[in-house]
């Protein structure tokens, strides 16, 4: 089953041979807009937006302001229930970000710890964890998610748990591989020799040295999770009304596709833009953190 452990060598947009200063520049260039979007979404309640769930049926399916029949009171138009699309986008973004972040953390913590454990202890611990990772990666995610949600019902905690399942195996695999090589460095032997307890070597010494790859991985996982969440919500298995996420908005937009294309277009654009930024940001971080480029 070695094909599973063969990661496709990815290449960032010309990340080879990028000078460090440009690396930092692109980290900022992609990180800043991302931070802005996240900030706007998180501060949604403070912004002068109309209630995202307020239904005004007389205003239903109004196109965006710049189109014929549009009105600046709802700049991006309204949906089939007359709710303001802009407001729903911002509030939906809020839940999308919160879910993506908690899902990422919920997958990263066990994944990183298990990867560390497998790489450091090796032997049967490694054998067991590696088997689990391979098995997890062999399960098609969306089907597993469907099975879990079908059995447990829809709720935000279940959704986050399911999203954590997307990621943990990836973290475990990458961190294990890096730990395997890191543990052979003499400083680890030196610490054992000084009587530093195993858990302290793992958490206090190995973990900080893996922080770079873990950050890159976590960033890229955020993108994957946003996509996974939107897919589940689109199938009606994730976020459901009155909660709003971009995926849930798309599910509603699908019904009005022929009448009001903007209801389906805009949340999809938002997802694509955010995931693209996240991926670019992750690639920029990768070339920034690349251990080969660090000046030892």
């Amino acid at each position: 089953m070695s094909a599973l452990t063969r990661t496709p060598a990815t290449y960032g947009a010309g990340s080879k041979g990028r000078v460090p200063s440009r690396g930092t520049a692109s980290v900022i260039a992609f990180g800043a807009p991302l931070a802005c979007i996240a900030l706007i979404a998180l501060l949604a309640p403070l912004l002068p937006l109309s209630n995202p769930n307020a239904q005004v049926l007389s205003e239903a399916l109004r196109p965006p302001a710049w189109l014929e029949g549009g009105d600046w009171s709802s700049p991006l138009g309204t949906d089939q229930l007359g709710r303001d699309v802009l407001s729903r986008l911002v509030f939906g973004g809020q839940l999308t970000f919160v879910i993506a972040f908690t899902g990422m953390v919920a997958g990263a913590v066990p994944g990183i710890l298990l990867g560390l454990l497998a790489g450091y202890r090796r032997g049967w611990v490694d054998a067991v964890i590696s088997r689990l990772v391979e098995a997890q990666l062999a399960l098609p995610f969306i089907l597993v998610a469907i099975a879990i949600i079908a059995a447990n019902g829809r709720s935000l905690p279940i959704l986050v748990a399911v999203l954590a399942l997307v990621g943990w195996a990836q973290y475990a695999r990458v961190i294990r591989a890096e730990t395997l090589s890191l543990r052979e460095r003499p400083f680890v032997l030196g610490l054992r020799c000084a009587g530093v307890p195993t858990w302290r070597i793992m958490l206090g010494h190995l973990l900080p040295n893996l922080a770079g790859s873990a950050t890159v991985l976590a960033t890229l996982q955020m993108g994957t999770i946003v996509l996974a969440e939107s897919a589940l919500s689109f199938l009606g298995l994730g976020v459901v009304a009155p909660d709003i996420s971009w995926g849930a908005m798309l599910a509603e937009g699908r019904e009005q596709l022929t009448l009001a294309w903007w209801v389906a277009l805009l949340p999809g654009l938002a997802i694509t833009a955010v995931v693209l930024l996240v991926n670019l940001f992750g690639d920029a971080l990768r070339s920034r953190f690349d251990p080969k480029k660090r000046s030892f």
């Binding site: 460095r185 003499p186 400083f187 030196g190 010494h205 040295n209 922080a211 030892f296």
Partner: peptide, 11 residues
């Protein structure tokens, strides 16, 4: 140890 830099935690 033999490798002076390798014997110290880089972080």
């Amino acid at each position: 140890f033999q490798d002076p830099h390798g014997s110290l935690d880089p972080r």
